[in-house]
Computed example of a mutant assay.
Amino acid sequence: MSTPYDYSERIGRVEPSATLAISNLAAERKAAGADVIDLSVGEPDFDTPETVVEAGKAALDAGHTGYTSSNGIPELREAIAEKLRGNGIDATADEVIVTPGGKQALYEIFGTLIDDGDEVVLLDPAWVSYEAMAKLAGGTLSRVDLAPHGFQLEPALDELAEVVSDDTELLVVNSPSNPTGAVFSEAALEGVRDLAVEHDFAVISDEIYERITYGVEPTSLASLDGMADRTITINGFSKAFSMTGWRLGYLHATEEFVGQAGKLHSHSVSCATNFVQHAGVEALENTDDEVEEMRAAFEERRDLLVDLFDEHGVDVDVGDGAFYMMLPVDDDDQAWCTAAIEEAAVACVPGSAFNAPGYARISYAASEKRLREAVDRLVSNDLL
Protein backbone atom coordinates (compact mmCIF):
# COMPACT_ATOMS: atom_id res chain seq x y z
CA MET A 1 0.00 0.00 0.00
CA SER A 2 1.45 3.34 -1.02
CA THR A 3 1.60 6.22 1.42
CA PRO A 4 2.22 9.95 1.00
CA TYR A 5 5.17 9.84 3.41
CA ASP A 6 8.66 10.43 2.09
CA TYR A 7 10.66 9.66 5.21
CA SER A 8 13.74 11.70 5.92
CA GLU A 9 17.20 10.30 5.47
CA ARG A 10 17.84 11.42 9.05
CA ILE A 11 15.23 9.13 10.61
CA GLY A 12 16.59 6.20 8.62
CA ARG A 13 19.91 6.50 10.45
CA VAL A 14 18.52 5.19 13.74
CA GLU A 15 16.73 2.14 15.07
CA PRO A 16 14.14 1.97 17.88
CA SER A 17 15.55 1.73 21.40
CA ALA A 18 16.63 -1.85 22.14
CA THR A 19 16.10 -1.37 25.87
CA LEU A 20 12.54 -0.23 25.38
CA ALA A 21 11.93 -3.08 22.95
CA ILE A 22 12.88 -5.64 25.62
CA SER A 23 10.79 -3.81 28.22
CA ASN A 24 7.82 -3.84 25.85
CA LEU A 25 8.25 -7.57 25.23
CA ALA A 26 8.38 -8.18 28.97
CA ALA A 27 5.22 -6.11 29.43
CA GLU A 28 3.44 -8.09 26.71
CA ARG A 29 4.33 -11.41 28.32
CA LYS A 30 3.21 -10.11 31.71
CA ALA A 31 -0.10 -9.02 30.19
CA ALA A 32 -0.49 -12.55 28.82
CA GLY A 33 -0.12 -13.94 32.34
CA ALA A 34 3.58 -14.84 32.46
CA ASP A 35 5.49 -14.23 35.68
CA VAL A 36 8.32 -12.25 34.12
CA ILE A 37 11.21 -10.96 36.23
CA ASP A 38 12.10 -7.76 34.41
CA LEU A 39 15.78 -6.95 34.82
CA SER A 40 15.83 -4.79 31.69
CA VAL A 41 14.39 -1.59 33.06
CA GLY A 42 16.46 1.52 33.63
CA GLU A 43 14.42 2.97 36.45
CA PRO A 44 14.50 2.56 40.23
CA ASP A 45 11.84 0.34 41.77
CA PHE A 46 11.25 2.85 44.57
CA ASP A 47 8.45 5.35 44.94
CA THR A 48 9.13 9.02 44.39
CA PRO A 49 9.81 10.54 47.85
CA GLU A 50 6.53 11.54 49.46
CA THR A 51 7.58 15.13 50.05
CA VAL A 52 8.32 15.49 46.34
CA VAL A 53 4.88 14.16 45.44
CA GLU A 54 3.30 16.55 47.93
CA ALA A 55 5.29 19.45 46.50
CA GLY A 56 3.99 18.61 43.04
CA LYS A 57 0.43 18.49 44.33
CA ALA A 58 0.87 21.78 46.16
CA ALA A 59 2.21 23.39 42.99
CA LEU A 60 -0.86 22.20 41.09
CA ASP A 61 -3.14 23.54 43.82
CA ALA A 62 -1.30 26.85 43.67
CA GLY A 63 -2.04 27.12 39.95
CA HIS A 64 1.43 26.40 38.57
CA THR A 65 0.01 24.93 35.38
CA GLY A 66 1.06 27.44 32.72
CA TYR A 67 4.25 28.05 30.80
CA THR A 68 7.39 29.01 32.68
CA SER A 69 10.38 30.92 31.42
CA SER A 70 11.89 28.70 28.77
CA ASN A 71 15.06 27.78 30.66
CA GLY A 72 13.20 26.97 33.87
CA ILE A 73 11.81 28.64 36.98
CA PRO A 74 14.43 30.75 38.77
CA GLU A 75 14.22 28.86 42.06
CA LEU A 76 14.95 25.51 40.39
CA ARG A 77 17.80 26.85 38.30
CA GLU A 78 19.35 28.37 41.42
CA ALA A 79 18.89 25.10 43.34
CA ILE A 80 20.60 23.24 40.50
CA ALA A 81 23.45 25.77 40.43
CA GLU A 82 23.90 25.36 44.19
CA LYS A 83 23.97 21.59 43.80
CA LEU A 84 26.62 21.88 41.07
CA ARG A 85 28.71 24.21 43.21
CA GLY A 86 28.72 21.42 45.77
CA ASN A 87 30.32 19.25 43.07
CA GLY A 88 33.10 21.78 42.61
CA ILE A 89 31.60 23.43 39.51
CA ASP A 90 31.50 27.24 39.52
CA ALA A 91 27.88 27.37 38.37
CA THR A 92 25.26 30.11 38.19
CA ALA A 93 21.55 29.88 37.48
CA ASP A 94 22.06 31.62 34.12
CA GLU A 95 24.19 28.67 32.99
CA VAL A 96 21.37 26.13 33.43
CA ILE A 97 18.59 24.93 31.14
CA VAL A 98 15.89 22.81 32.77
CA THR A 99 14.62 20.16 30.36
CA PRO A 100 11.81 17.56 30.27
CA GLY A 101 14.17 14.69 31.01
CA GLY A 102 17.88 14.18 30.49
CA LYS A 103 17.34 12.90 26.93
CA GLN A 104 16.03 16.29 25.87
CA ALA A 105 19.15 17.92 27.28
CA LEU A 106 21.29 15.54 25.23
CA TYR A 107 19.22 16.19 22.11
CA GLU A 108 19.75 19.91 22.50
CA ILE A 109 23.50 19.50 22.95
CA PHE A 110 23.92 17.38 19.83
CA GLY A 111 21.66 19.70 17.86
CA THR A 112 23.64 22.72 18.98
CA LEU A 113 27.16 21.37 18.38
CA ILE A 114 27.09 18.72 15.64
CA ASP A 115 26.95 19.34 11.91
CA ASP A 116 27.04 16.75 9.14
CA GLY A 117 30.31 14.85 9.28
CA ASP A 118 31.44 16.08 12.70
CA GLU A 119 33.23 13.44 14.76
CA VAL A 120 31.62 12.24 18.01
CA VAL A 121 33.65 9.85 20.18
CA LEU A 122 31.90 7.28 22.39
CA LEU A 123 33.31 5.10 25.14
CA ASP A 124 31.89 1.60 24.69
CA PRO A 125 29.80 0.07 26.11
CA ALA A 126 27.72 3.22 25.63
CA TRP A 127 24.08 4.02 26.29
CA VAL A 128 22.14 3.51 23.06
CA SER A 129 20.73 7.03 22.83
CA TYR A 130 24.17 8.65 22.45
CA GLU A 131 24.66 6.91 19.13
CA ALA A 132 21.13 7.67 17.99
CA MET A 133 21.39 11.36 18.78
CA ALA A 134 24.78 11.70 17.15
CA LYS A 135 23.42 10.11 13.99
CA LEU A 136 20.29 12.24 14.01
CA ALA A 137 22.49 15.32 14.13
CA GLY A 138 24.56 14.03 11.20
CA GLY A 139 27.66 13.18 13.20
CA THR A 140 30.13 10.42 12.46
CA LEU A 141 31.07 8.02 15.25
CA SER A 142 34.45 6.90 16.54
CA ARG A 143 34.60 4.48 19.45
CA VAL A 144 36.91 3.25 22.20
CA ASP A 145 36.22 -0.21 23.65
CA LEU A 146 36.52 -0.32 27.45
CA ALA A 147 35.42 -3.96 27.79
CA PRO A 148 38.99 -5.37 27.68
CA HIS A 149 39.86 -3.04 30.56
CA GLY A 150 37.14 -4.11 32.98
CA PHE A 151 35.00 -1.27 31.60
CA GLN A 152 37.34 1.31 33.13
CA LEU A 153 38.64 4.34 31.27
CA GLU A 154 42.01 4.92 32.92
CA PRO A 155 43.75 1.89 31.37
CA ALA A 156 42.26 2.81 27.97
CA LEU A 157 43.55 6.40 27.86
CA ASP A 158 46.27 5.51 25.33
CA GLU A 159 43.62 4.05 23.05
CA LEU A 160 41.47 7.15 23.47
CA ALA A 161 44.49 9.29 22.60
CA GLU A 162 44.84 7.36 19.34
CA VAL A 163 41.19 7.96 18.42
CA VAL A 164 40.73 11.67 19.18
CA SER A 165 42.30 14.35 17.04
CA ASP A 166 41.99 18.00 16.07
CA ASP A 167 38.98 16.91 14.00
CA THR A 168 37.07 15.63 17.04
CA GLU A 169 34.09 17.80 17.88
CA LEU A 170 32.64 16.03 20.92
CA LEU A 171 33.43 13.25 23.40
CA VAL A 172 30.70 11.68 25.56
CA VAL A 173 31.67 10.59 29.08
CA ASN A 174 29.10 8.81 31.29
CA SER A 175 30.25 8.16 34.86
CA PRO A 176 28.76 6.33 36.68
CA SER A 177 28.05 4.38 33.53
CA ASN A 178 24.99 2.95 31.94
CA PRO A 179 25.30 0.03 31.14
CA THR A 180 28.38 -1.03 33.14
CA GLY A 181 28.08 0.76 36.49
CA ALA A 182 31.74 1.83 36.17
CA VAL A 183 32.82 5.02 37.94
CA PHE A 184 35.80 6.58 36.20
CA SER A 185 38.73 7.64 38.37
CA GLU A 186 39.83 11.25 38.74
CA ALA A 187 43.05 10.29 36.96
CA ALA A 188 41.01 9.00 34.01
CA LEU A 189 39.05 12.25 33.82
CA GLU A 190 42.26 14.25 34.05
CA GLY A 191 43.43 12.26 31.03
CA VAL A 192 40.24 13.27 29.23
CA ARG A 193 40.91 16.88 30.23
CA ASP A 194 44.42 16.80 28.81
CA LEU A 195 43.21 15.41 25.48
CA ALA A 196 40.29 17.83 25.27
CA VAL A 197 42.57 20.81 25.84
CA GLU A 198 45.22 19.51 23.45
CA HIS A 199 42.77 18.90 20.61
CA ASP A 200 40.25 21.62 21.54
CA PHE A 201 37.05 19.55 21.65
CA ALA A 202 33.99 19.69 23.90
CA VAL A 203 32.91 16.96 26.33
CA ILE A 204 29.48 15.89 27.52
CA SER A 205 29.66 14.70 31.12
CA ASP A 206 26.53 12.65 31.76
CA GLU A 207 26.24 12.42 35.54
CA ILE A 208 22.67 11.16 35.87
CA TYR A 209 23.73 8.34 38.24
CA GLU A 210 26.15 10.36 40.40
CA ARG A 211 24.08 9.99 43.58
CA ILE A 212 24.09 6.18 43.23
CA THR A 213 27.64 5.08 44.03
CA TYR A 214 29.23 2.54 46.35
CA GLY A 215 32.35 3.43 48.30
CA VAL A 216 33.61 6.02 45.81
CA GLU A 217 33.01 9.72 45.22
CA PRO A 218 32.55 10.53 41.53
CA THR A 219 34.36 13.51 40.05
CA SER A 220 32.47 16.10 38.02
CA LEU A 221 34.48 16.69 34.87
CA ALA A 222 33.67 20.41 34.77
CA SER A 223 35.31 20.84 38.19
CA LEU A 224 38.77 20.05 36.76
CA ASP A 225 41.12 22.87 35.78
CA GLY A 226 40.66 23.75 32.14
CA MET A 227 37.27 22.03 31.72
CA ALA A 228 34.75 24.64 32.88
CA ASP A 229 34.42 26.20 29.42
CA ARG A 230 34.43 22.98 27.39
CA THR A 231 32.18 20.67 29.48
CA ILE A 232 28.42 20.38 29.19
CA THR A 233 27.17 18.61 32.31
CA ILE A 234 23.99 16.54 32.07
CA ASN A 235 22.00 15.45 35.10
CA GLY A 236 18.42 14.97 36.16
CA PHE A 237 15.91 13.67 38.64
CA SER A 238 14.91 10.30 37.20
CA LYS A 239 17.46 8.05 38.87
CA ALA A 240 18.50 9.67 42.16
CA PHE A 241 14.97 10.64 43.13
CA SER A 242 13.05 7.86 41.40
CA MET A 243 11.23 10.39 39.22
CA THR A 244 11.46 8.75 35.79
CA GLY A 245 7.89 9.53 34.80
CA TRP A 246 8.09 13.14 35.94
CA ARG A 247 10.48 13.89 33.05
CA LEU A 248 12.84 16.43 34.56
CA GLY A 249 16.50 16.98 33.73
CA TYR A 250 18.96 19.76 33.06
CA LEU A 251 22.17 20.79 31.39
CA HIS A 252 24.86 23.15 32.61
CA ALA A 253 27.38 24.92 30.41
CA THR A 254 28.69 28.41 29.70
CA GLU A 255 26.19 31.23 29.27
CA GLU A 256 27.22 31.42 25.61
CA PHE A 257 26.36 27.76 25.05
CA VAL A 258 23.10 28.09 26.99
CA GLY A 259 22.13 30.99 24.75
CA GLN A 260 22.64 28.90 21.63
CA ALA A 261 21.07 25.69 22.97
CA GLY A 262 18.18 27.77 24.31
CA LYS A 263 17.10 28.41 20.72
CA LEU A 264 16.51 24.71 20.13
CA HIS A 265 14.96 24.36 23.58
CA SER A 266 12.45 27.16 23.09
CA HIS A 267 11.46 26.02 19.60
CA SER A 268 11.01 22.36 20.57
CA VAL A 269 9.62 21.88 24.09
CA SER A 270 9.12 25.53 25.14
CA CYS A 271 9.79 24.63 28.78
CA ALA A 272 9.71 21.77 31.27
CA THR A 273 6.39 21.16 33.01
CA ASN A 274 5.67 23.92 35.50
CA PHE A 275 4.48 22.01 38.58
CA VAL A 276 7.14 19.33 38.04
CA GLN A 277 9.84 21.97 38.30
CA HIS A 278 8.50 22.98 41.73
CA ALA A 279 8.69 19.34 42.80
CA GLY A 280 12.29 19.32 41.57
CA VAL A 281 13.22 22.05 44.04
CA GLU A 282 11.91 19.88 46.87
CA ALA A 283 13.85 16.88 45.57
CA LEU A 284 17.14 18.76 45.57
CA GLU A 285 16.67 20.39 48.95
CA ASN A 286 14.93 17.86 51.21
CA THR A 287 15.38 14.22 50.19
CA ASP A 288 18.88 13.22 51.27
CA ASP A 289 17.57 10.52 53.61
CA GLU A 290 15.41 8.89 50.93
CA VAL A 291 18.24 9.00 48.39
CA GLU A 292 20.62 7.34 50.84
CA GLU A 293 18.08 4.63 51.69
CA MET A 294 17.71 3.78 48.01
CA ARG A 295 21.46 3.91 47.37
CA ALA A 296 22.15 1.53 50.27
CA ALA A 297 19.52 -0.92 49.00
CA PHE A 298 21.10 -0.94 45.54
CA GLU A 299 24.51 -1.63 47.04
CA GLU A 300 23.16 -4.64 48.93
CA ARG A 301 21.55 -5.95 45.75
CA ARG A 302 24.73 -5.49 43.75
CA ASP A 303 26.72 -7.45 46.32
CA LEU A 304 24.07 -10.17 46.41
CA LEU A 305 24.20 -10.63 42.63
CA VAL A 306 27.98 -10.78 42.64
CA ASP A 307 27.85 -13.54 45.27
CA LEU A 308 25.13 -15.46 43.43
CA PHE A 309 27.01 -15.37 40.14
CA ASP A 310 30.22 -16.36 41.90
CA GLU A 311 28.47 -19.42 43.34
CA HIS A 312 27.82 -20.55 39.77
CA GLY A 313 31.32 -19.80 38.52
CA VAL A 314 30.44 -16.58 36.70
CA ASP A 315 32.85 -13.66 37.13
CA VAL A 316 31.48 -10.18 36.59
CA ASP A 317 33.22 -6.81 36.56
CA VAL A 318 31.76 -5.08 39.59
CA GLY A 319 30.78 -1.47 39.00
CA ASP A 320 30.82 1.11 41.76
CA GLY A 321 27.76 3.01 40.61
CA ALA A 322 24.34 3.00 38.96
CA PHE A 323 22.25 -0.18 39.24
CA TYR A 324 23.50 -2.21 36.30
CA MET A 325 25.82 -5.14 35.78
CA MET A 326 27.26 -6.59 32.58
CA LEU A 327 26.85 -10.37 32.60
CA PRO A 328 29.14 -12.28 30.22
CA VAL A 329 27.00 -14.59 28.06
CA ASP A 330 27.24 -16.40 24.72
CA ASP A 331 28.70 -14.54 21.75
CA ASP A 332 25.16 -14.24 20.38
CA ASP A 333 23.85 -12.10 23.21
CA GLN A 334 20.62 -11.36 21.37
CA ALA A 335 19.81 -15.08 21.19
CA TRP A 336 20.77 -15.50 24.85
CA CYS A 337 18.44 -12.69 25.94
CA THR A 338 15.65 -14.11 23.80
CA ALA A 339 16.11 -17.50 25.45
CA ALA A 340 16.23 -15.87 28.88
CA ILE A 341 12.82 -14.29 28.46
CA GLU A 342 11.21 -17.17 26.55
CA GLU A 343 12.56 -20.07 28.62
CA ALA A 344 13.28 -18.51 32.03
CA ALA A 345 10.91 -15.51 31.93
CA VAL A 346 13.82 -13.21 32.83
CA ALA A 347 14.20 -10.02 30.80
CA CYS A 348 17.69 -8.62 30.17
CA VAL A 349 19.08 -6.28 27.51
CA PRO A 350 21.53 -7.62 24.90
CA GLY A 351 24.98 -6.11 25.28
CA SER A 352 25.14 -5.53 21.53
CA ALA A 353 22.60 -2.75 22.05
CA PHE A 354 25.43 -0.90 23.82
CA ASN A 355 28.09 -2.03 21.34
CA ALA A 356 29.18 -4.73 23.79
CA PRO A 357 28.48 -8.10 22.15
CA GLY A 358 28.83 -11.13 24.39
CA TYR A 359 27.22 -9.48 27.39
CA ALA A 360 23.74 -8.92 28.77
CA ARG A 361 22.92 -5.86 30.86
CA ILE A 362 21.18 -6.72 34.10
CA SER A 363 19.37 -4.06 36.09
CA TYR A 364 19.18 -4.81 39.80
CA ALA A 365 16.26 -2.45 40.29
CA ALA A 366 14.31 -5.38 41.72
CA SER A 367 13.87 -6.90 45.16
CA GLU A 368 16.48 -9.31 46.56
CA LYS A 369 13.86 -12.07 46.42
CA ARG A 370 13.27 -11.52 42.71
CA LEU A 371 17.00 -11.29 42.00
CA ARG A 372 17.56 -14.66 43.68
CA GLU A 373 14.69 -16.15 41.72
CA ALA A 374 16.01 -14.72 38.46
CA VAL A 375 19.41 -16.33 38.96
CA ASP A 376 17.76 -19.63 39.90
CA ARG A 377 15.70 -19.55 36.71
CA LEU A 378 18.72 -18.82 34.54
CA VAL A 379 20.63 -21.67 36.17
CA SER A 380 17.78 -24.17 35.89
CA ASN A 381 17.45 -23.36 32.19
CA ASP A 382 21.19 -23.83 31.58
CA LEU A 383 21.68 -20.16 30.79
CA LEU A 384 24.41 -19.72 33.40
Rank of each mutant, 00 (worst) to 15 (best):
G33P: 02
D166P: 11
Y67D: 09
E54K: 15
G313R: 08
A297D: 14
D118A: 10
V183P: 00
M326G: 05
L39T: 01
I232F: 06
I341W: 00
L305F: 07
G111Y: 01
K30P: 01
W246Q: 04
G150S: 10
V98M: 04
I208L: 14
A296Q: 14
D124R: 14
G33D: 09
A187G: 07
G226I: 12
D310L: 08
H199I: 10
L308D: 07
P357C: 13
S223N: 07
T273F: 12
T51A: 13
Y324N: 09
G236Y: 00
R143W: 05
I22M: 15
L20E: 09
L141I: 13
V172D: 02
L264K: 02
I232L: 14
A374D: 03
T3A: 13
M227Y: 11
R372P: 10
L123F: 06
A156Y: 02
I80E: 00
E119Y: 04
D6P: 02
V329I: 12
A374V: 02
M243Q: 05
E78A: 14
R13F: 12
R230P: 03
S8E: 12
S2D: 13
A202E: 12
S8N: 13
Y324F: 15
S220L: 03
A356F: 02
Q260R: 15
P176E: 04
E75L: 07
A196P: 02
G72K: 01
V96F: 05
T219I: 09
V349E: 01
R370I: 09
I109D: 00
K239S: 11
G88Q: 06
V197H: 08
E255H: 08
T19G: 10
L141E: 00
E95I: 03
S352F: 10
G319S: 07
S270W: 09
G358Y: 01
V183S: 05
S205H: 15
G42T: 05
P218H: 09
I114V: 14
P350S: 13
E54V: 11
V203C: 04
I89M: 14
P357F: 10
S175L: 06
P328D: 09
A344T: 06
E290M: 12
K263V: 12
I341Y: 00
D35S: 14
A21I: 05
S352V: 14
G33V: 13
W336R: 02
Q277Y: 03
R193N: 04
S238C: 12
T68D: 06
A296H: 11
G181P: 00
Y364I: 06
P4H: 11
A297R: 07
R295M: 07
L251M: 15
L170H: 01
K83S: 09
S266L: 10
G259L: 08
T254W: 03
A134T: 08
V14K: 03
L122K: 00
E368S: 15
G88C: 07
I80D: 02
A93I: 07
L308G: 03
A344E: 02
